[in-house]
Nucleic acid binder design. Structure first.
Lengths: 191, 191
DNA sequence: TATGATTAGTCATGAATCTGACTATCTCCG
DNA sequence: CGGAGATAGTCAGATTCATGACTAATCATA
């Protein structure tokens, strides 16, 4: 299980509420992992039961009460161990790729639509990441930031996210161009 | 479930044995999806039970017998429907990113090792994909190939794989440089 | 002639992830 | 005042994915 470690990693720079964490993992603000709110809450419960995080109840007047979670010593140790353990490359899984792989058999028109829709989604995500990047840099230039910050991790991962989304946009544009350049006729060329 | 569709997509260009499919999905020769052999076999069984693929027993003298699977009409229809259904962006999940995200808290040295190890893995995968690319092109130049082939899908997806691995190598190299450029001191800067 | 590698699969079980449907409180807008 | 929307969470169940341990035949090689 790696959601466990992703949640711990999200707490590296201090405490956060379950709701806040849930939003980060949902929207992709946490560019390094994705999960639904329910999963995050469930994981936090388990992590608290096993003593990896601690919770602090905060009574609010203006909003429903919340719990702020933070790493314990054990949690930090667990994360340390995880970070040092050898990692594999991510196992590629992408529905869009499956659709593109099948483009010789199926009607290419809806595949093309899908490709263009995903390009648009990637553009949106890219914009969100670039905003996050600026927020992290806070006006400093990269070299200065890297030399002086204590929050390097999020900057390194957001750069990965930016690269990935840019690449997605480019690849989608290329695929769209290729698909459009082909004779209009239906697929099924190999039957 | 998308493994289901990935298996169907792998059969777009004709029949294949379970063993062959299993190897493709394992090694990453199927650059568009990853799965363990047992999963592929299990999926093929289910797909046959539900009539999406058909099997043909082939008796071999020189090797154990095998079953060759191919798409049925229903399977092709299912794939068609899947390819046309709107797709989401892949939900990012990468253990290495979790480790990098945590780099401010944990010892950066093993993270750096991990980053460099993954760069090497990505280089290997890149080489495999580039070989596959050449195999697909078969000496033709890209423009000619695109105009004339009936196997466009695999070429489009392998290009994505190549781009992704290249980007991985570049990002890892950048991260390694950044981590090495920092003061040697241990993490835990924010405690 | 034994030994390991490759081909070709199967079974059972556990872990991780996704989904839909819920409960509440508080703020803002018309 | 009434409803929409954000905040803050919970529960149960289903799907999907991963793992280890198997069987069994053939081939190359030492």
């Amino acid at each position: 299980m790696a959601l466990r470690h992703a949640v711990l990693a999200a707490l590296v720079h201090g405490e956060a509420s379950g709701y806040e964490l849930a939003k980060r993992f949902e929207a992709g603000v946490a560019n390094f992992w994705h999960a639904k709110p329910q999963q995050v809450y469930a994981e936090l419960t388990k992590l608290r039961e096993s003593g990896m995080v601690q919770a602090r109840e905060v009574i609010q007047q203006s909003r429903p009460n919340k719990r702020l979670f933070s790493l314990t010593e054990d949690g930090a140790a667990m994360l340390e161990k995880f970070a040092a353990a050898p990692k594999e490359l991510p196992t590629g899984r992408d529905d869009l790729m499956v659709a593109v792989q099948a483009v010789d058999l199926v009607d290419p028109a809806p595949v093309l639509e899908n490709v263009e829709r995903c390009a648009e989604l990637a553009r949106q995500k890219l914009a969100a990441f670039e905003e996050l990047e600026q927020q992290i840099l806070g006006g400093r230039d990269e070299a200065t930031f890297i030399r002086t910050t204590h929050h390097l991790g999020p900057y390194l991962t957001v750069q990965r996210g930016i690269r990935f989304q840019r690449d997605t946009v480019e690849w989608c544009a290329w695929v769209a161009e290729v698909l459009r350049s082909r004779p209009e006729g239906r697929g099924r060329r190999n039957q």
